[in-house]
């Protein structure tokens, strides 16, 4: 991987963690994972998912496995969706964001049900809506920045 890309993905990780601290309950690293699956070699998203899984499992309060389900479902949605849509289409990202928001609501509810926990529904709905809205916007920003990285074949 080129040095510019290493710096880019390191900054994405740092900013994502910082933003997750500011807006709890929303995954700011998921758009980066989709972008890595679109733009990089397959090893890059695998490594990024591996590192980010540890961050999510360590900082979250759900039992181990919720993060794996989260990113596994995201990757599955992407692979299923890019057969039907153009992978870099903003509409596809919008649909993916909506699916991710719904998945956040469903996954947290299922995990809470299995643990016999109660979760405040209003907050969960708000987080799901935030996730659905933030995902395509953040993906668009990251996509633009990534394309203007030095030594990128798409860079102007």
């Amino acid at each position: 991987m080129r040095p510019a890309n290493i710096v880019f993905w390191s900054l994405v990780t740092l900013l994502g963690v910082w933003l997750q601290n500011l807006v709890p309950g929303v995954d700011f690293l998921a758009p980066g994972l989709i972008l890595a699956m679109q733009e990089e070699k397959w090893t890059v998203p695998v490594w990024l998912a591996f590192i980010w899984l540890f961050i999510h499992e360590g900082t979250g309060s759900m039992p181990f496995g919720a993060g794996i389900l989260w990113y596994g479902a995201l990757a599955g949605l992407y692979f299923f969706g890019h057969w039907l849509f153009e992978a870099r289409n903003f509409l596809f990202m919008f649909i993916l964001g909506a699916c991710l928001g719904a998945m956040h609501f469903f996954l947290i509810n299922v995990m809470a049900l299995l643990q016999d926990w109660s979760i405040p529904m209003e907050r969960l709905l708000t987080e799901s809506a935030q996730q659905a809205l933030i995902f395509p916007i953040e993906w668009g920003l990251l996509y633009l920045i990534h394309h203007y990285l030095p030594e990128n074949r798409h860079a102007a």
């Binding site: 963690v17 997750q20 601290n21 709890p24 309950g25 929303v26 995954d27 998921a30 961050i55 999510h56 499992e57 360590g58 900082t59 979250g60 309060s61 759900m62 919720a66 993060g67 989260w70 956040h104 947290i108 995990m111 809470a112 926990w117 979760i119 969960l124 987080e127 996730q131």
Partner: peptide, 15 residues
């Protein structure tokens, strides 16, 4: 070292 963080932070917790 951390308050609620990430999509899996469903409970009111800190680290």
């Amino acid at each position: 070292i951390s308050h609620r963080l990430g999509p899996n932070a469903a409970l009111e917790t800190f680290l």
